[in-house]
Design a protein around this nucleic acid. Structure first.
Lengths: 220, 220
DNA sequence: GTCTATACGGAGATAGAC
DNA sequence: GTCTATCTCCGTATAGAC
């Protein structure tokens, strides 16, 4: 990695862990083993570092999510892949910047706080949401055509529902500390899929009757 | 309102709108029409103002949510009341501090950023989540006993699911700007209720058959 | 490209009068 | 309780040598 990239990565690390204002250029310089004024050769100001840090996060996130979906063909797998990719992104980012997990990060916070400072960023974030909305709509669409997802589902609402669940889980995983989210993820995804799936829920105790039920319904 | 409260409210306003570090004691003093050193008569430091601001928010939130649930008896109404109260809290807070809505706020951000600085606060937030979890569990429990909510629902998971949806909606309402959340709230709540409700979904076109279906199922 | 030296401003906080 | 005056520190940023 060249100096410029190392400076950017160090900035990203500090901004995410301790916030923009609590990070000084001296800290960044020390981390990269250069002197403070050298930073100005690569970036024109501290705010320029902030801009590029946030830009880096969104690009990375967008890329990973796009990639996660193309790995599968069935709507259920695609949706699960999206769900896990989005939830893992925060953890992966933490590992990438070399965070020691004593200070849990939440990349959405930095969006909330600073994206409004730069029009380019708040537009980019809006575009990101539009993109993942399109991806999710297509997944639902395919699922509906294949009969795997209820035809009655309103795509727009379902998309918002999915995105909000994912964002919400990221948020509470750093705030609601006495709950271990890792163990509940699969069940939360299953809940999500159940709300879309056109299959009748087959609770174990009632399987027999439920099945009959459907059979008779079709007959009539 | 006495000077102390006015200082606290002004701090809260600035902290929420522009963040803690971007707020100076001079700004707060100007807003209250006093001089900077007078603040130190009421609060021992800037950080003390932060602590009290966050404490105020959690207390207020907890109180409003507790109250919202007691206004209703049926699980469906209680849940809807909870849902709306949580979503409205951010807006109401914005109005309370006299925000002009040019700078959308998100009270969860301030939790994410600063609660870890004070053990008392991160414990209080955890307690808050435990409390609303208990409230939601009781609602689901009543619903299951009355037969309104599916008996097969895992309460723990359902509670996390509800909380994450609410938090997620608050988050994306400030980031995903090209979507108007207000118009979709009812549908999002209906989705939530449908995922819990023990009633068969009655899509309008299939109502007749669905009804027969249930009838026959019972007979058998 | 990276450095040393330094300018400049503004932040939080205190002393002590009224 | 609130003020004026002031302290001290440390931040970003620049000038200019190597």
């Amino acid at each position: 990695m060249n100096t410029k990239d190392r400076v950017l990565m160090a900035s990203l690390k500090f901004f995410l862990i301790q916030g923009y204002e609590n990070t000084t250029l001296s800290m960044i310089a020390d981390e990269v083993n250069i002197k403070k004024p050298s930073i100005y050769y690569h970036f024109k100001s501290k705010e320029d570092l902030l801009f590029n840090s946030i830009y880096f996060i969104i690009n990375n996130l967008e890329e990973k999510i796009n990639h996660s979906v193309t790995k599968f063909v069935s709507p259920k797998d695609q949706l699960q892949s999206f769900f896990e990719c989005a939830l893992d992104f925060n953890t992966n980012l933490s590992i990438m910047i070399g965070n020691d997990f004593n200070h849990p990060i939440n990349f959405i916070t930095i969006f909330q706080l600073y994206s409004n400072r730069f029009n380019a960023l708040s537009e980019k974030i809006d575009t990101y949401y539009k993109n993942i909305s399109t991806i999710l709509e297509e997944i639902i669409d395919t699922g509906q055509k294949n009969g795997l997802i209820k035809g009655s589902i309103d795509k727009n609402i379902a998309v918002l529902d999915i995105i909000s669940r994912v964002e919400g889980l990221i948020a509470i995983s750093t705030l609601y500390k006495s709950v271990d989210m890792k163990n509940k993820r699969n069940q939360l995804y299953e809940n999500l899929w159940l709300s879309l799936s056109s299959e009748k829920p087959q609770s174990k105790t009632k399987k027999f009757f439920e099945y009959k039920n459907i059979g008779l319904g079709r007959k009539w």
